[in-house]
């Protein structure tokens, strides 16, 4: 079963205006790497950028297994920029 991935506005702008993706992924890392904005969410080492938060059904993946967090299907994955900036 697919998961739903929701993007914030800047990332949606970079994805051609699309803020909702449905895709098949076994882990959070697979889901993020399948996005057309993967290189904005992950750095060149493939690590989640420090100020990008990823929530699976409301739970921060950093409190689980990070990018290795498994997905069973049916979850909603929300990407959120941390509260930072000027």
């Amino acid at each position: 079963m697919a998961v739903v991935v929701l993007l914030p506005s800047l990332l949606a702008g970079e994805a051609g205006g699309r803020n909702r993706f449905e895709l098949d992924a076994a882990t959070i890392g697979d889901a993020v790497r399948a996005l057309p904005v993967a290189n904005l969410v992950l750095d060149e080492r493939g690590e989640l950028r420090r100020l990008v938060n990823v929530y699976v059904d409301g739970v921060d993946v950093r409190d689980r297994d990070g990018l290795a967090t498994p997905l069973a299907g049916g979850e909603t994955v929300r990407l959120v920029g941390a509260i930072a900036g000027g």
Binding site: L10, L11, N39, L40, D43, E44, L51, V52, A82
Partner: peptide
């Protein structure tokens, strides 16, 4: 540059109407 989404380069061949981001940029 974005505080959250990192550093990149955009380019536009139509004077800003549409933009493409670099595919490969890292150390």
């Amino acid at each position: 540059n974005s505080d959250v989404y990192g550093a990149t380069v955009h380019r536009s061949a139509d004077r800003g109407q549409s933009w493409t981001r670099a595919e490969e940029l890292g150390l």
